[in-house]
Design a protein around this nucleic acid. Structure first.
Length: 440
RNA sequence: GUGGCUGUAGCUCAGUUGGCAGAGCACCGGGUUGUGGUCCCGGGUGUCGGGGGUUCAAAUCCCCUCAGUCACCCCA
């Protein structure tokens, strides 16, 4: 048996990192629930036609197939692993609409799969944390600022660099391009989106190469260069002299979002009219959150409004949502050594074992401590005390408990300070910050 | 999916025109029959990412492949 090698794009964390991820997810969940979002989990697979209902995402989807399937057997052939949590949620809403109350707010924290080529912070299997609100027929515009603010609040409570959510509106851009007489708005969006990467001159050149006139290209660039912390982008766009009803609609929507956000949580959202990307089901507001110091590594959260994702012939459930890239954030910060747990094991106390014959006595000490919620393990062997202390030290376990010569007369040592004092397993408590591993 | 760079011990890396696989840190044992970290002594712990080829001889040259990374594409 040769040693297994990693699988490209399928990261696995070490225990210390897994502890970080769990703390991280717990934090997100608690903030989501604080805002009244209900938990949902969907199956890992969806019918392929559900996944591909919108846009050209087929190349990203992993398809499921039974190993023993005969060529004639196509029963599973239509299943694919979900590549995000929004499409499965839209399906879930339609399927359970009769049992849900609208507007429906849910959070969903699960892994998703995409057949992309991996890079730093970019995986084929990764965890996302989504919040979405859907409603029947119409979903209120106020949700367009509520959701990014909840996501920002959840992230702000974690020991990570600040995240700023860049916000734009698909209608605004599309209306602008239409008013300008541009033929292929999608191509323009793709080019304009690279502004921060390739710079204004190359953007104009690429737009001209796409068939735009010099004037059109410069107008598109001017729009993309608009970045404001509040609703003042409206005047900036108006000054560009393009008029179109869809543009006006987009401007009004984005203005509502930005004026609310700049008042409720200054600095978390910026209007950035170069933001164009994201999955193709977005129809209005779009978000792209960037983490300070990691702007080049792409968005750490993203989302937007989707008016047409969930609809049967008669019912329509528009929604707005945002997705936090848990694996990406963790991968980037682990890679730069900027995030770790205070210790790679949950254990708070190691009960030292003086003699194998006294193991039962040590077990009783452990039981007494655990009964009060203190994570404890008993030393694996009756090695020299020096080795047992080192066992704890290597794992970052802060306390070693030494049983006394007589039952109940033990001592506990803080191995960081070396302080050691008599203690009773029935009453001793560690400092609150040592009870469980913390993020740092 | 396309292209560039990289891959040697747990980690960071050295390894000459092809000639016995190395260093620092980490780790293990002992000094120290029972309270660690310092210090001293001892130990290399390795399919040189994997497979194939050239050669008397390959970590070194060639081909393929896997992984990491960067750019593109796309995106969390």
């Amino acid at each position: 048996m040769t040693r297994p090698t990693p699988l490209s794009g399928f990261p696995e964390w070490l225990p210390g990192q897994q502890i970080v991820e769990q703390r991280f997810v717990e934090r997100l969940r608690s903030v989501f629930e604080l805002h009244g979002f209900a938990p949902v989990e969907t199956r890992a697979v969806e019918p392929l036609d559900q996944l591909l209902r919108k846009g050209e995402t087929s190349k990203e989807v992993y398809v499921l197939r039974r190993l023993q399937a005969t060529p004639e057997d196509t029963s599973d052939e239509q299943l694919g692993l979900h590549f995000d949590l929004t499409v499965p949620f839209a399906r879930y809403v339609l399927e359970h609409a009769g049992k849900l109350q609208f507007p429906f707010r849910r959070y969903q924290i699960q892994k998703v799969w995409r057949g992309e080529s991996p890079q730093a912070g970019r995986y084929r299997e990764f965890r996302q944390a989504d919040i979405d609100i859907v409603d029947r027929d119409e979903v209120g515009l106020h949700y367009d600022y509520e959701l990014p603010l909840v996501a920002a609040e959840a992230l702000a409570g974690l020991p990570i660099p600040p995240v700023v959510i860049h916000t734009s509106n698909r209608k605004l851009a599309q209306g602008f391009y239409r008013g300008l007489g541009v033929e292929d708005p999608a191509a323009v969006l793709r080019i304009v989106d690279k502004l921060d990467k390739i710079g204004p001159d190359k953007v104009v050149a690429a737009l001209v190469a796409e068939g735009l006139s010099d004037g059109q290209a410069k107008a598109c660039l001017s729009l993309a260069e608009v970045v404001t912390p509040d609703a003042s982008f409206v005047e900036r766009v108006a000054a560009l002299g393009v008029s179109d009803p869809l543009l006006d609609e987009g401007l009004a929507e984005l203005a509502t979002v930005l004026s609310a956000a700049s008042e409720l949580a200054p600095g978390l959202l910026v209007a950035d009219l170069s933001i164009a990307r994201g999955l193709d089901y977005y129809t209005g507001t779009v978000y792209e959150g960037k983490m300070r110091g990691f702007e080049k590594s792409g968005a750490v959260c993203a989302g937007g409004r989707y008016d047409n994702l969930a609809s049967t012939g008669t019912d329509r459930f528009p929604g707005v949502g945002i997705s936090i890239g848990v694996s990406r954030i963790l991968g980037l910060l682990f890679g730069s050594g900027a995030l770790s747990a205070s210790r790679p094991v949950p254990t708070c106390v190691l009960v030292a074992l003086p003699d194998e014959a006294r193991r039962r006595e040590c077990d009783r000490i452990a039981v007494a401590l655990r009964a009060r919620g203190i994570p404890v393990e008993v030393a694996p062997t009756a090695a020299k005390y020096g080795k047992q202390i080192r066992y704890a030290d290597r794992r970052g376990i802060p306390f070693v408990w030494f049983p006394g010569e007589e039952a109940g007369a033990g001592e506990v040592k803080d191995i960081r300070s070396g302080d050691q004092a008599p203690a009773d397993p029935a009453t001793w408590v560690p400092p609150a910050e040592d009870l469980h591993p913390t993020l740092g």
